[in-house]
Nucleic acid binder design. Structure first.
Lengths: 111, 111
DNA sequence: CGCTGATACAACCGTACGGTTGTATTAATG
DNA sequence: CATTAATACAACCGTACGGTTGTATCAGCG
């Protein structure tokens, strides 16, 4: 459940250097919110908000262990963004594919 | 020159459905700003601003042809975002690689 | 139970953002 | 060269965003 989010949320979540760094750090899935917060020159609450944004976007998840909540990045969330970019790339190559088709088909030479 | 932009700008540029649609349409590289604007339920100026955001992010380029300026998506700009996501994926797999290493090395069975 | 650690949430503040309308620039055309 | 099509830019408005401080919840420990 959860983990589902819109493309808007995923991209805007990743459009912030602090949040991207949190995503990177959370790949190991070892640090809690407080530990993460120590890495950044801002208040704990600010980092907690960043984590909340990432969680709402489905890019990270939180798992309770003891009194902490360990933050772990969710690859499926990131894949939403990646698939879109892949689609763009495919369309792009398709466009060039079509262009080369035209060229090779009709043996056109000049502009 | 130009086309260079920060990761923040690329991701936040793509964090808007209208702009993503412009990127998709501009893959063909045939429409000008006014033609693009006709697809959306907003003013020409609004679309022009969206195009400007995408251009500043290096995700699209504009090329003057006659009195129009044809909008064309720039794959290199999109690749900035893709590379970051690839990095996350690599780190992620690396993490699992390390985990499986531990498992296969020591023939551990239970949790 | 009472305390302390860890996380969450609410209210507030300045700034950036997405939209509008209106005006300026630029380039083809009669 | 005056006109008009196409694009750009500026000013303005409401809302969302990133940060702050302060308070509330919630789980473990003595």
């Amino acid at each position: 459940m959860s983990t589902l989010a819109g493309i808007d949320q995923v991209f805007s979540a990743l459009a912030d250097a602090t949040r991207r760094d949190i995503v990177r750090r959370a790949i190991d899935g070892t640090e809690g919110v407080a530990e993460l917060a120590e890495h950044y020159p801002m208040s704990f609450a600010a980092v907690q908000k960043h984590v909340a944004v990432l969680e709402r976007a489905g890019v990270i998840t939180k798992e309770r262990t003891g009194r902490r909540k360990v933050v772990r990045t969710n690859l499926d969330g990131l894949l939403i963004a990646r698939r879109l970019l892949d689609t763009y790339e495919d369309l792009w190559r398709g466009r060039y594919g079509r262009m080369t088709d035209l060229i090779t088909d009709r043996k056109e030479t000049h502009a």
